[in-house]
Design a protein around this nucleic acid. Sequence first.
DNA 1: GATGAATGAGTTTTCATTCAT
DNA 2: TATGAATGAAAACTCATTCAT
Lengths: 202, 202, 202, 202
Amino acid sequence: MSPKVSEEHRMMMQEKILAASMTLFSRKGFHETSMDDIVKESGFSKGAIYGYFKSKEDLFFELQKRSATLSLNELKSMVSQEEAAIAKLERAADLVFASMCEVSDEVCRMDLEFQLASSRMPNMRTEFKKQQMVIITLLSDIITEGIEAGEFRKDLDADNIAAILVSTIGGLSNLLVTTGMSLDWDKIKSALVSTVRYGIMR
Amino acid sequence: MSPKVSEEHRMMMQEKILAASMTLFSRKGFHETSMDDIVKESGFSKGAIYGYFKSKEDLFFELQKRSATLSLNELKSMVSQEEAAIAKLERAADLVFASMCEVSDEVCRMDLEFQLASSRMPNMRTEFKKQQMVIITLLSDIITEGIEAGEFRKDLDADNIAAILVSTIGGLSNLLVTTGMSLDWDKIKSALVSTVRYGIMR
Amino acid sequence: MSPKVSEEHRMMMQEKILAASMTLFSRKGFHETSMDDIVKESGFSKGAIYGYFKSKEDLFFELQKRSATLSLNELKSMVSQEEAAIAKLERAADLVFASMCEVSDEVCRMDLEFQLASSRMPNMRTEFKKQQMVIITLLSDIITEGIEAGEFRKDLDADNIAAILVSTIGGLSNLLVTTGMSLDWDKIKSALVSTVRYGIMR
Amino acid sequence: MSPKVSEEHRMMMQEKILAASMTLFSRKGFHETSMDDIVKESGFSKGAIYGYFKSKEDLFFELQKRSATLSLNELKSMVSQEEAAIAKLERAADLVFASMCEVSDEVCRMDLEFQLASSRMPNMRTEFKKQQMVIITLLSDIITEGIEAGEFRKDLDADNIAAILVSTIGGLSNLLVTTGMSLDWDKIKSALVSTVRYGIMR
DNA sequence: GATGAATGAGTTTTCATTCAT
DNA sequence: TATGAATGAAAACTCATTCAT
């Protein structure tokens, strides 16, 4: 009778544990966070946590899966708009840099944790690749659209340009947390946008 | 008469330990590598290793310091050449992508380790920032030179473009190891080079 | 339903660990006793022990705190008796020498460990001083009482005499363990008692 | 031809090492002092130190042997004086309390180290006992002398009184370092002297 | 299911002693 | 004889995971 209720309940519990873990992993890092830390932060018992997630790594993996979903939807909704490809790219840039500004160092650090894990653990890598491919494909589609519409140069290599753009954004995020540089995101955005615009438009 | 050993010998020993550590850190990661692993891999005793490096972290830090020196010199020698700014940038691209191709996943993974460490440990961050600044400044100087020579657009923001370029390269390297994508570096290089050329030239 | 364990149970476990530690510390000394020794002697696991005490030092400290409580209560109860001050002192001597006889070398050695630790570690010193002050004050009060009652000489320096008496007892205990002399406690007691009696009475 | 010279030289070297060790052992304690510390403090090499002393413990033992010699000679010279037994005891008290005042905490701590070691290590104990016996016997002789001269009570138990006096002095020294109390040695001395005088004289 | 005490292999690091030079 | 680099056993402590209740 109650499977639905308890399933929901289960999800809520999981969510709480994930939230606590996220906080700790991003603040202290995966290795420096102990299950005891998570117990304290989440208020759950050891046994409960192991009831919901089979290991610390599993918890981390689950977190990685969710990390993407955040901004992706906004990005997707953007594509469906009727407008020029270049406008779409610029709106994407707005979106990305907006989140870049408001997002804390900790989120960027968490991202680095995910990247490092992906570079070593097959299941993480698969997930990470899937996520990156979604974004790259999305951008690639916009570029292809722009080429076909005559906005962009005909010789553009859509897939690789998309990969480059994604890498640039990722690289900037990393630069921020790894150097602690106080970057002026507005200036960077306009430098990037204008360079790309000149770089790809006819 | 004395086991007092030449500075050279000491350096050689250090180098061997560093090499063994490098292998392990990049293959398994910093945290997953134990001092016992390093003992086994290097053939040194525990005590000997601690005689050369005061902690596992110190070993890692030393490795980070050395990591930069590798390609930087080539990059620097390039700047002094007499040629157009755009040509310099292209030669830099050649250099970077060449190393990208031949370099193993392990080096890139190691790079991610360094980045993550830099995002959390002050002394690593200081070092990392210094290293990044050298490259960014180098590129920024070339760009400024290009602007002054009338090669590039006058409104270019040299520093930020440089930061963007460095981020792009770093991001691509990360994309490689984190997704395991089989990237076609030649195509990526030409996509990047042509985009940037159009993007910044008058 | 829950392994949540009563406070009593927790105390019992602690007590067992403390007992095992006491045995080892007094037999082998603090430094020569390893946590592994305590693991073996107590039958607990490493983790369990660290669950109850946060460090080997903490274990030692806890032991020190308890060491005093043993005979102190008897000593205190004595004070409240209605009798001449000199009689009180003699009864105290009886008490002290009685425990001196029955007590093993190990307890005295343990005492030396505590003294050495107190001479170097601030928290131990604070505790030790507190314990010593209780006894000194107790004796000092008896002496003052004796002076006021006209039993003892008027010019007696109650505090310092008390400190001297406590030192004498401590010194004798140390002499026992450090030299292994086979002391005749009865004779020593009467020598001390008669000397002090003549020494302080009018 | 040169055994004498090198024997002297050897002694001088030993003395230097012992001095350095003494400094460290009393400052930091036996266990907390490493051979490397002694190397640094003494300026000798590891090998040299092991050439002179067969182990860290041996070094400590040698130090213990010397520790007594210090004041003992003065004490002995005192005995031979022509004067009343009570006067001898008082001069002994002067001597002891004078050294008590000027001597640092570190010397007292070192004493505790010796005591603890003596309570556990047979060879140390033998040495320690020998040293204590010399002093106890010396005092005992004075007391016997006083009894025979009719200065002191006839029923005095010379040996045990001597042991008690030695214990009192040792106990006071320990009280000083273990509690950090700021003792007024002058007052303590007069309290002790007058008590003992009344306590043992006819 | 939930709890948290218990486990114990594994971690980094130290240091008395040895020995090739 | 002097040196100090090298050794490696042993130390204190951690922590992901299990399981009796």
